[in-house]
């Protein structure tokens, strides 16, 4: 067997699958952007136009995109703030406990996303458990709006993606050579200084990986705003869904999708660049 050719033979079926069912459909989406919506929906193949892009850059859609990024950013930040100390605590535990704790941390991630989201509908609704508890304790006079707003959406995203952040940061912490921190402590640095100057920078790649994943999964999310936002919180995923199904304007939906793909590529490129630079400086 030819040693140079064999890797390509191994890769060919998988790569072909990805090209046929991901690259080609995405290219199709890019190409749909230059057509018009037909009068009764679908695509009018006869008209080639730049109109969709002109519309997509209307401030209205920029606002929706910005809101999605803001909500996703907030969810990412909170997930990191919750997830880092939790991962740190797990990494500090005895090896036997580490396995158990990590197992417990990721177990919810393996249950159904819809059911996890539904649990919050049960908890947060005006006649739900949390409001009932608050009123029973006499903390609030009547039900307070917990569900069907941005708060509920951010909470839902944080809830669903925190296990992921814990996992990513835990594996970064695990790869960390403990001798660095020991050396720092031996040299007289406080625990806090050691954490801020040694541990955190050295796990930055893990943090970034977790953050990018949560951000990317959140910004394009459809289910969480749909179910926990009560239709009142519009994110770009819902906008795309609405263009395809409600407005039946496939070309415009395709344009918004293409812009979202573009945004993802920029984020990932930036992350790759930052990671490379961080490693470059570290060595």
């Amino acid at each position: 067997m030819n040693a140079n050719r064999s890797p390509w033979l191994l890769m060919a079926p998988g790569l072909l699958w990805l090209v046929a069912l991901m690259v080609v459909p995405c290219l199709l989406i890019f190409s749909l952007t230059i057509f018009e919506r037909g009068t009764y929906g679908g695509i009018d193949w006869h008209i080639i136009t730049a109109e969709n892009f002109r519309r997509a850059f209307d401030p209205l859609y920029a606002v929706i995109l910005w809101d999605s990024a803001r909500i996703a950013g907030l969810a990412t930040l909170i997930a990191l703030l919750i997830g880092y100390p939790a991962a740190y605590a797990i990494a500090k535990a005895s090896p036997r406990w580490q396995t158990v704790l990590l197992f417990l941390a990721i177990l919810p991630f393996w249950t159904n996303y819809l059911i996890r989201t539904y649990a919050w509908i049960v908890l947060l609704n005006p006649a739900g458990l949390i409001n009932g508890l608050l009123q029973w304790l006499g903390l609030t006079a009547g039900p307070i709006p917990l569900l069907y707003n941005e708060f509920a959406v951010v909470l839902g995203l944080v809830y669903n993606y925190t296990p992921f952040v814990i996992l990513a940061i835990y594996s970064a912490l695990q790869r960390l050579d403990p001798s660095y921190a020991e050396a720092s402590r031996d040299l007289g640095a406080s625990a806090a200084t050691t954490f801020w100057r040694i541990t955190l920078p050295l796990t930055a790649a893990g943090v970034a990986a977790g953050a990018v994943f949560v951000f990317v999964l959140s910004i394009g999310n459809f289910l969480t705003p749909d179910l926990l936002g009560g239709g009142k919180v519009q994110m770009v995923g819902n906008l795309i869904y609405d263009q395809f199904l409600t407005a039946r304007d496939w070309p415009f939906g395709a344009t918004l999708s293409s812009l979202l793909i573009g945004l993802m590529m920029i984020i990932l490129f930036a992350q790759a660049l930052a990671t490379r630079r961080a490693y470059g400086e570290g060595r």
């Binding site: 459909p25 995405c26 990317v216 999964l217 910004i219 394009g220 395709a254 793909i261 993802m264």
Partner: peptide, 11 residues
């Protein structure tokens, strides 16, 4: 990392 909804409508 491609948003599910984008892959869904592309397919």
């Amino acid at each position: 990392i491609i948003p599910d909804i984008v892959l869904a409508i592309a397919l």
